[in-house]
Design a protein around this nucleic acid. Structure first.
Lengths: 264, 264
DNA sequence: ATGAGGAATGAATCCCCAC
DNA sequence: GGTGGGGATTCATTCCTCA
């Protein structure tokens, strides 16, 4: 039976109290350095690699041997130059013994046109994929029966051709691609400034979590990961530092299906 | 008048002989470490960052001050782990004084279902973007598409500029996104094992090359960059080490438009 | 109901101007 | 001069109002 638990507190401290090997996968979107620091606290760029290694060190303990971690992030641009903290963080995680499996891409077909007007619109984000060993659990067919383009209106020539060329949609279930298109406008942010869409979370969860498994999100925010996990039939452990967002999560989960066993 | 030149030889040696500031942009797809070493020589992963810094050092001399470089590449996966040489190469180029502007993505909607069957199909590649300064030439509207939303909300300054007839307002062209979808099946490889499609090259060239400017491709391969540049009205300098591929390029360019002035 | 049209806004980024 | 706050810019989408 799919169950969920929410812990209020700093994720490193909370994870220290969780039992070894209790989690099948981690799906999360940590703070993007100082991008929204005033709203929910941020991590300085210089400290970002070490900070990530620190919370991932706790993840290592509670993650099962073939479990893996998907991290949604993208560096910002300042004065025309891309920040390098994500590069440095990836190398630091490798240095710390994590296996970098691959990088997946979240495409945002209708991302807001904000940003530098003399540059292309920033319309994708990274999904970093790290594991404890080189053969983590992964079921690329779990997403194979879904369209690569979730929640996107199928208007425009390019999109039609795209679908027409998708031979894998005809021959039964095929492997998913290493990118997924999800409209950010589907995001139900509930006041959280940095939420991601439910369908993106569901895609990530299905990819690396065995049936009936337990997902962890150490930076739960408005709780999208928990919501998607339960809806997809997985269990989920959420951790969130801000009491205000914890309240949002409890409310959102209660709305979802009041008949389910609630928080413990 | 758009012209093209092809040099046969090692790109570092050839570039040493090219005049300073003679090139507006660089668009290329260098060898991917040892991926196809047997076919056209490869660069060991350990040496890849230094090797890239070395050829980019020559690029620096011949590139104009506001010129920039687009590099198509993606690391391979071996034994379930992604190679780290691209991460290290990016940091090495930054260390060498290059400004990393951003990363663009080439999406391949119908990439062949090769690769590990227990992993998502690899269907995108990176386009690294490096420049000499923080404000390289970039025209995101060159690849843009019509939008009827441009300049809809004209408040304050914008309204005044619109009254004054500012041409960049209400132009009807929305800027391009930072990814581009091009089918790899459009590739005309002419026997070259690592060619990229013409439309991808054209997109990259238009983004960072001023009208009538000159593009350089130090790893010309089957000549797709040269072909796309000429077709789009730019001049182009190609460099290719293998005589066999130089012959392919000459033939392809001759097919394109025999009336144009040919190789010198 | 239905549709046309305006307002608000979205993990942005830059420029300008106080301190 | 470095730093930090405020305003302008940008366009797809949703939501709301009103004919």
């Amino acid at each position: 039976m799919a169950e969920w638990t929410l812990y209020e507190g700093d994720c490193i401290e909370v994870m220290k109290g969780l039992p070894e090997g209790s989690v099948d996968s981690v799906v999360t979107s940590p703070p993007y350095a100082m991008q929204r620091a005033k709203l929910y606290g941020g991590v300085p760029e210089a400290e970002y690699p070490a900070w990530t290694v620190a919370w991932m060190e706790q993840v290592r303990r509670i993650l099962k041997p073939h479990g893996s971690v998907l991290i949604n992030i993208r560096e910002h641009i300042r004065n025309g130059e891309m920040s390098d903290y994500v590069h440095r963080t990836r190398l630091a995680l490798r240095e710390a013994g994590w296996i970098e499996c691959d990088e997946l891409i979240w495409m945002k077909p209708d991302a807001p046109p904000v940003g530098h007007p003399k540059r292309p619109r920033r319309s994708w984000e990274r999904i970093l994929w790290f594991a404890k060993d080189q053969q983590p659990y992964c079921d690329p067919k779990a997403n194979g029966r879904f369209s690569d383009r979730i929640g996107v209106s199928l208007a425009g020539e390019g999109f039609k051709k795209w679908l027409a060329g998708a031979s894998d949609l005809r021959s039964g279930i095929a492997r998913c691609r290493d990118w997924v298109a999800v409209s950010p406008s589907q995001t139900d942010s509930r006041g959280h400034p940095a939420a991601y869409p439910r369908d993106l979370a569901a895609w990530m969860i299905r990819l690396i979590t065995p049936p009936g498994g337990t997902v962890l999100d150490p930076f739960s925010g408005s709780g999208t990961t928990l919501l998607a996990a339960i809806q997809e039939g997985f269990s989920c452990i959420g951790i969130e530092k801000e009491p205000e967002y914890c309240e949002v999560i409890r409310k959102r989960m209660a709305e979802l299906q009041p008949a389910l066993p609630l928080a413990k």
